[in-house]
Write a protein that binds this DNA or RNA. Structure first.
Length: 414
RNA sequence: GGAUGGAUGCCCGAGCGGCCAAAGGGAGCAGACUGUACAUCUGCCGACUCACGUCUACGGUGGUUCGAAUCCACCUCCAUCCA
């Protein structure tokens, strides 16, 4: 990982160039002016996060990395927690209305966010990042004042042309949700007035909302305000990257164990490895180019590196090392280094039932189907009889069980 | 407030009295091919049972019927049109 201070004090490169060459940028406004601004002074900027869960997930990763790059280039990050807006729910690109949240839940989530964010951006020292919560100004808003001071600047006609609302016109959109754009625009205005923030960044799905704020500042305050949105990580079939069977890929070790997290990146498709490295790690571009030069099995080395780097950033060195070691043990044969998991069961337990016990099958029926499909191997020999007991397969009480190609673990019966 | 249409398995979606644990697609899991990739192909895909089979499921509650996801009544929620 690059040293923050060294980068910050070294010969400064324009942050926009850094983000551009790594492939972050999707859209900007007044790009030339923004470029000059970023090149001439330390610019306070912000990105908003909805505290709708108690962990960030991979979808937040890119804006967070962008914040880190900007901070390293000498700009000052503000993390806006949407404690107030979360009580409304962002309608953007959603087919259903979101659940509204209580203040307690939101506060709990904010704490969790800060902890995770501090791995990427610094909350102390010079240019420290700051956390702000829009509940602080949104909750005390007076409706009439808001309509008069802010409402006048918004054209409903214009709002309706925004893609995020248009797609909702068929399904239905409540007035509550319709106001989300005004509130988010207001956030930008407040932050501009209080902290001199001139730039909002975010995912491209936030483009309309970010623009609303920048426009509001330009019209109401006659001041420059800029917007920047980032690419979304997509699989080559166009689906969002980071979806797993269990839902999102979380940055929280409890929700997505580091090993699983590591494996996700170990398995990204070849074509996306370079992109992931540029967007999700601080690796040098030249090194990335070198590692991803060959589109064949040499790609595996690049994927190992990617998985390691990303896990290191998110979970720290110990977790990254462990994930790597477990991977070696599980996939490079052997198994001596695999830690054995103790399971309370007799050697006479049927294999099918054992699979259910260890959580590798949801029901005995599924376990039997797995065996019928030839997916289960114990100590190297395939289980072929659905009624087989563990003791039929091995005389040992400690053995290696494989399910398919990707699951391999050692168990000890007690 | 009125009229009409709708609610089906993890998701989308067909079924419209017995042949329905419910077509088709997606997701998922396993197998083949590989490089722990992508794409492709094959199988599986409610629970329990070795199995015959049994149970639980088509928004909710009742009803008609030998038999209901399918018909009827009421309720809940959603959409469209009219006011």
């Amino acid at each position: 990982m690059a040293d923050i201070k060294k980068v910050a004090t070294g010969k400064k490169k324009n942050a926009l160039d850094i983000l551009k060459e790594r492939g972050f940028i999707e859209q900007t406004v007044y790009e030339d002016d923004l470029y000059k601004l970023l090149g001439s002074e330390s610019v306070p900027f912000y990105a908003g996060f909805d505290p709708t869960a108690d962990s960030l997930h991979i979808g937040h990763y890119i804006p967070v990395m962008a914040m880190a790059h900007l901070q390293r280039a000498g700009h000052k990050p503000y993390v806006l927690i949407g404690g107030g807006t979360a009580m409304v729910g962002d309608p953007s690109y959603r087919t259903d209305m979101r659940q509204m949240m209580s203040r307690e839940t939101i506060n709990h989530n904010v704490e969790a966010f800060k902890k995770q964010l501090s791995r990427f951006i610094s909350f102390s020292g010079e240019g420290a990042a700051k956390l702000v919560n829009n509940a602080d100004w949104l909750l005390s808003l007076n409706y009439i004042d808001f309509l008069r001071d802010i409402g006048v600047y918004f054209s409903v006609n214009k709002m309706l042309t925004a893609e995020c609302f248009r797609s909702r016109m068929e399904k239905g959109l409540s007035f509550l949700e319709f106001n989300y754009m005004l509130m988010q625009g207001y956030d930008f205005l407040v932050l501009n007035q209080r902290h001199g923030i001139k730039l909002q960044i975010g995912g491209n799905d936030q483009w309309a909302n970010i623009l609303a704020g920048a426009d509001l500042i330009r019209r109401k305050e006659q001041q420059d305000a800029f917007a920047m949105t980032f690419k979304l990580l997509l699989n080559s079939d166009g689906s969002k990257m980071g979806k797993t069977a269990k839902g999102a890929l979380w940055l929280d070790a409890e929700k997505t164990p580091p090993f699983e997290f590591y494996q996700y990146f170990r398995n990204v498709e070849d074509a996306k490895v370079g992109e992931c490295m540029r967007l999700l790690t601080f690796m040098e571009l030249s090194e990335i180019a070198e590692l991803t030069r060959h589109m064949d099995e040499r790609m595996n080395a690049a994927k190992e590196r990617l998985a390691y780097e990303v896990t290191l950033l998110v979970h720290g060195q110990a977790a990254a090392d462990e994930a790597q070691a477990r991977t070696k043990a599980a996939f490079s044969g052997g198994g001596g280094e695999l830690p054995a998991e103790a399971v309370k069961a007799s050697p006479d337990i049927p294999v099918a039932e054992f699979l259910v016990t260890i959580g590798q099958a949801a029901s005995r029926g599924e376990a039997k189907r797995l065996i019928e499909g030839g997916g289960i191997t114990i100590d190297g020999s395939k289980v072929t009889d659905i009624a087989a007991k563990v003791s039929d397969m091995t005389a040992e009480t400690e053995f290696i069980l494989q399910k398919g190609k990707k699951f391999r673990a050692k168990y000890k019966l007690i």
